[in-house]
Nucleic acid binder design. Sequence first.
DNA 1: ATATAACCATACCGGTCTGTATACTTGCAG
DNA 2: CTGCAAGTATACAGACCGGTATGGTTATAT
Lengths: 202, 202
Amino acid sequence: MTAPELPEALRPLTPAGERLVAAASELFYDRGIHAVGVDLIAEVAETTKKTLYDRFGSKEGLVVLYLQRRQHRWREFVSRHLDEMSVDRRPPWGPLGVLDALELWMAEQSRGCAFVNAYAELGGSDHPGVEVIRSEKQWTQRLYRRLCEEDGLPEPEQLAAAVHLVHEGVLVLATAGAQPDAFAHGRRTVEQLLAAAAGQDR
Amino acid sequence: MTAPELPEALRPLTPAGERLVAAASELFYDRGIHAVGVDLIAEVAETTKKTLYDRFGSKEGLVVLYLQRRQHRWREFVSRHLDEMSVDRRPPWGPLGVLDALELWMAEQSRGCAFVNAYAELGGSDHPGVEVIRSEKQWTQRLYRRLCEEDGLPEPEQLAAAVHLVHEGVLVLATAGAQPDAFAHGRRTVEQLLAAAAGQDR
DNA sequence: ATATAACCATACCGGTCTGTATACTTGCAG
DNA sequence: CTGCAAGTATACAGACCGGTATGGTTATAT
């Protein structure tokens, strides 16, 4: 359901098109979607509104592409992080690797989860971006389930759901809650959940 | 820090003023802050923009009042719920009562956490509403800590942080993630965390 | 050679945004 | 009686919104 739509979103764009998505991505993430106008996007991208509408048809189309590309970047980031960790400094359980990746990912981004933020603005409408947001959360939860299964943990479905709840909570409290120790609390909590699950299996 | 600002926010307003905050609260929550204009607010409140600016000075002032009043409503709601539960059908631990209250609270509100949503729109600016958002998260965390202490659970600070992470995760995944079973997963997870903490103490 | 894609520059459209100005009505308290 | 707070109605200002129109330039590919 979610897979076939990403390749289309990742097709190479023209140079000006790439500058536009880059500018829009940064502006949307930092200031919000409704707060950023197409005139500003074109100006920051050093091109014109004409080119923006030639490439993307509407602001809505640009928003969808922003979300799709960000989703792809997150998937690549966490996948690469998990692969690199498989050699050295591997945490005792796979799901912890995702949480470590999340902390690294958020170190450069101070506005929290782009999908949660986008949902705050689009959730009450029928904007096509809502579907992308929903699929991002599904993907992350499936990733946790896969990692729980690979570690041979019991009830991987339930465990993945629990870990994912903590994951999202960390994002919220580290940003909107202004609690920088949310990552430490989250890791500790997930360690405890995983240890309890692994222990109960013995 | 957070306490002295609420009484000011709860001072009684003129009839037209009350209609304005009521209309603004519903519109801001359902559609987002930037997406709702002052003209619409005045129209829904069956008054005029003139009255809006006479009462609140600016849209920003109305936004702050919206957040402060919603914070107060949430505090009242959860406090009353905890009190009512103290007689019958009390869950095994206090923190679970907050989670139950959250589920009831969210049953009528489909747009998730108003403070997380507001932060998505205001977080990148110096809007005075950001302070209210931050204080709401602090209050909820302190509530969890108090309840953990009252139940005599070990390491109440750490435990409250963990439960609060799950709490916020539930809100996110039940709305942006479109996972209606997030409440069930969250309750299960919190039960597990509390049981583990209580058990380790023996 | 010529068609086409990509791009730039600029002006414009109708509508909406926050906020202000003007002028009038109502009810109440000194 | 008078002053004042509260409210209504309406018009306006200046900026910005998403989106379109016109016209010209450059590079490349057939």
